[in-house]
Design a binder for these strands. Structure first.
Lengths: 399, 399
DNA sequence: CGATTTAATTTGCGACGCGTATTAATAAGA
DNA sequence: TCTTATTAATACGCGTCGCAAATTAAATCG
């Protein structure tokens, strides 16, 4: 077990303060005191040290309640955007999205590469990723040496702690130490993370879960992913292993197992339409969902049927997830949301049927169709999170 | 967020030391130093305070390596059994089991009431439970006032934090504040917990998960439960809600949802045999599994078929759990294990098929058919755990 | 019996968080 | 304009913690 010494105590409170500043914009010391329940003294000491380290800035203007308030005005504190920069990336089968963000998580530069990397050997993919990172950093007017760390989000079973990709639908190889590979290439600390986990943190920081400390996110893309926020922290399986919803088994028959991915994955839904040559081509190029959307609006009944079936399956799967994690909110994201009403309605209906009565009021389902940038930004947030947890001068009694 | 002050620090380290002593029997201070990575000074201070509080005892004999070792002999420390007593209970549909344990978790008295309480109103059940607790305490030669706290383990959806039973297959009523009810009746702190969670802690403390800090347990009784140990702690859903495996949905049809409980619950398996009057009677009296075992050994093919189907379903459900939690070990417990080879073989086979290749080596499955006492002891362990976390004299700098 | 070895405690130090008192910076009132 | 009231932030002193080094305790070995 981790041993508790003053240093840990300091680190915890420092994180607590830093997190308050991040979450609640420009914020005064008094308000931090209230939020963290730390004493004014401690807050003052910690913010002082954060200021010394250049992680935060003061601002004298922004006190909202400045009109007709008597005493000394509050000095507002905010993150120093220039304190560090990180790169976040979303790596998917048919595209990569890179962003460079500052210390606040604001995007400085974004780059989308619509490249189909599906099942290329690892070296090819690493080449493309390396290139993307370098270009995006350049676009931001920075040098790679100015980047503190990089986080790559990709689908599959990721072992965050060790940086290994145990398996990913977009890779040919299995069990690759991708973090080490990319760290060596870019000479910058690189971590890998499940894309679903990344977007989960993105929603916690910037999106629909800012107000929550527990939450579950289901991502419906070519791969089906799951992210869990538990007690304000990302919950990963034992050993830091990420979840992979698509691997869930729905049932068994003589021929083998029926997995969720084969029932409600993007390919499964669109696959029902593969007869049409133009459509298949669109799918291959990553435009499948856009096409599907058009077809559904034109009342393409086989596709609508597939969407309804998928929605039903996802619906009760979400109910199962709620049974296990009891989160107050489930956020559903991903390209499959483009299937529109037939899909969503059947999902909601199936969920309502499947959720056990005793959990009926526990969870609300929310849909969110943010763009790819948010995913990449989530990856960046993962990198920032690790930074926040151990701000370089962890020890720093002023001086 | 919890604010970190010296008190928290001390509490953490105190717990760490106490836990070392609990786990590793009589243990010397040096060894605690090694295990906890605390400094000898700190260990000495904390053990001193624990000794003052009467939570631990010294023992001068038990140094194993005492022969032909030069220096000053180690003084062994161990829990003081008399430091506190708690009651643990397992409440099931057709029986209740109570135990009184000492501070080490050793059973001082056990009491089994083979009473069918299925779906009685809450007041009736509370009466029986109250009676059972009182009798068991008496059997241990104690008075209720000497009991520090009580933990009741029962199936269903339990909200541990608030003490509410949101729903339980053995209760007629839903959303009962059972902890408050029993606390008032017994005038002793009473907590409620999912039975699966209780047995999970039992295995962590006394059983097949002593060496692990992550683990998942699946309980197959009349109800299907799940317990998760994550990072040496019990993992409960958001809000302290326990999991209830039986509510998991396997699929949907026009008539409604198909839940795991209806496919692989004890009643579902034995239900296939209800034609036989004698057998139905046995089931009603809680001897169903014993009978089933006999029938299976006598090659009762419909029942064997049911067992195989149930095993298959449980098998891939476990694979799904592993996909989500990636525990190094899954412990399967509960009366359904009595179905024997047909059941276990089909479970293993289904699991092997269903587990995603990338997780093949992650988890091992272990079966355990401990008796009911262990369940009740697990409940007692839950009570003790909360005691350990805040040993009364939380503040106590020697003096 | 003294030297040696290992265990446990004592001592001195630096860091932390907190409570109280103090200083800083503003608005309202005379 | 000057004073007072009010609120924000800091300085100081206290008690606790954990740790490293020194010291004491208790055994074995020659």
């Amino acid at each position: 077990m981790k041993t508790a010494d003053p240093e840990l105590m300091r680190a915890m409170n420092r994180f607590s303060v830093l997190d308050s500043i991040r979450r609640h914009g420009p914020i005064s010391r008094v308000e931090i005191t209230e939020r963290t329940e730390l004493s004014p003294t401690t807050v003052s000491a910690i913010t002082g040290s954060l200021l010394d380290d250049g992680l935060i800035l003061t601002r004298h203007e922004g006190d909202i309640r400045s009109e007709s308030v008597r005493g000394r005005p509050r000095v507002m504190l905010e993150l120093n955007p220039a304190a560090a920069r990180v790169v976040g990336a979303k790596i998917a089968a048919n595209r990569m999205v890179f962003v460079v963000t500052d210390f606040c998580g604001s995007v400085l530069a974004a780059l989308t590469l619509p490249i189909r990397i599906d099942r290329q050997p690892i070296s090819v993919i690493a080449d493309i990723v390396e290139d993307g990172v370098r270009r995006c950093v350049l676009d931001a007017g920075l040098a790679l040496s100015e980047i503190h760390s990089i986080c790559l989000g990709l689908p599959g079973v990721i072992e965050h702690r060790s940086g290994h990709i145990r398996s990913s639908p977009i890779l040919r190889d299995a069990n690759v130490d991708f973090a080490a590979e990319m760290s060596a290439r870019l000479k910058t600390t690189t971590i890998v993370e499940s894309d679903a986990t990344a977007i989960t943190l993105a929603h916690h920081w910037f999106g629909q879960a800012r107000d929550l400390e527990d939450m579950v996110l289901v991502s419906l893309e070519q791969t089906l992913g799951l992210g869990v926020l538990h007690n304000n922290r990302l919950f990963r399986g034992a050993g830091g292993l990420s979840h992979n919803l698509g691997d869930l088994v729905l049932g068994m028959s003589k021929d083998g197992v029926m997995r969720l991915a084969s029932q409600a994955g993007e390919n499964a839904i669109l696959g029902s339409e593969q007869a049409d040559g133009r459509f298949a081509e669109a799918v291959r190029l990553g435009r499948g969902m856009a096409h599907a959307q058009a077809l559904i609006e034109a009342d393409d009944s086989p596709l609508i049927g597939a969407a309804i079936r998928a929605g039903e399956t996802i619906g009760f799967t979400i109910a199962n997830i709620v049974t296990l994690f009891a989160p107050p909110r489930v956020i559903v994201v991903g390209s499959s949301l483009a299937l529109g009403e037939p899909f969503l309605t059947s999902l909601r209906k199936a969920y309502a049927l499947a959720i056990p009565p005793s959990l009926q009021d526990v969870s609300e389902i929310v849909f969110d169709d943010s763009n790819d940038d948010l995913w990449a930004r989530g990856a960046a947030a993962v990198a920032l999170y690790e930074l926040y947890e151990s701000p370089w001068n962890t020890t720093g009694p002023a001086l």
